[in-house]
């Protein structure tokens, strides 16, 4: 008969990932590379927003993009065709999010020589990506008008971890009951420090502000503070 012994562990499941993430964040800071983790639900306009923003910034900054999806390379192709910047596609193999280790592997496969800004387009999902720290310098999420102003109430964790919330597709606002003031109030309830910008990737409204924010973050990252 085998003997049984109990080992007390009391360790959070996310502990190892959190350590990996901290390590990656530190490495990137030392190299002066800013990594943005961009999240949202599917169809909120992540890829279109990125193409518009990158085209505004690519003369000033050296940019690379990592596209994370469960399958396909449509987004990586779109980014490459739309902007010409260095792009890779990461497949999560059925997983609904990226973790710090997968992010590091993605970063390693990029040519980082001279790169200032890496943008990670996470898997379209408002639940899982919020739970796994990728090691990004900052988190950003896009909420599009058709999704509704109540999303900060329904997915509190996502809004509580984001430094910047972009409210996209403002051009269709007249057709939806989207209350911008209420939405802002709900976001601030979850995260007092979140910055909120209204944008429209299709018409280009607000994209310059988002680009400016990114440029500032890169400057801070390089500033050694």
């Amino acid at each position: 008969m085998d003997n049984l012994r109990i080992i007390e562990v009391k360790r959070s499941v996310f502990e190892e990932n959190d350590k990996d993430a901290e390590r990656l964040r530190k490495e990137l800071k030392e190299r002066g590379i800013f990594l943005l983790n961009l999240m949202s639900s599917p169809g909120s306009g992540k890829t279109t927003t990125l193409i518009k923003t990158i085209n505004l910034l690519k003369d000033k900054l050296n940019i690379a993009v990592m596209e994370a999806d469960i399958d396909s390379d449509t987004d990586a192709k779109k980014i490459l065709e739309g902007t010409g910047v260095q792009t890779i596609q990461i497949h999560t193999g059925g997983m609904c999010h990226l973790d710090a280790d997968m992010t590091r592997q993605g970063i390693r496969s990029l040519d980082l020589e001279k790169v200032d800004l890496v943008i990670l387009e996470n898997v379209g999902n408002l639940v899982c990506p919020a739970e796994f720290d990728t090691g990004a310098s900052k988190n950003c999420m896009i909420l599009s008008v058709p999704e509704g102003d109540d999303k900060p109430l329904k997915y509190p964790l996502m809004f509580s971890i984001c430094d910047l919330v972009l409210i996209n597709k403002t051009d269709v606002a007249p057709y939806f009951d989207f209350d911008f003031d209420k939405c802002e109030q709900y976001i601030k309830m979850r995260n007092k420090n979140a910055k909120i910008l209204s944008i429209c990737a299709k018409t280009g409204e607000g994209i310059d502000e988002f680009a400016m924010w990114l440029k500032e973050q890169v400057d801070i990252q390089k500033g050694g503070k």
Partner: peptide, 21 residues
């Protein structure tokens, strides 16, 4: 009031493992 925060309930913790020897 809506001015509230979660004290406990969002944990995922490995409490213990039972080892065969």
């Amino acid at each position: 009031s809506l001015n509230t925060y979660l004290l406990t309930g969002n944990e995922i913790i490995i409490k213990q493992i039972e080892v065969k020897e």
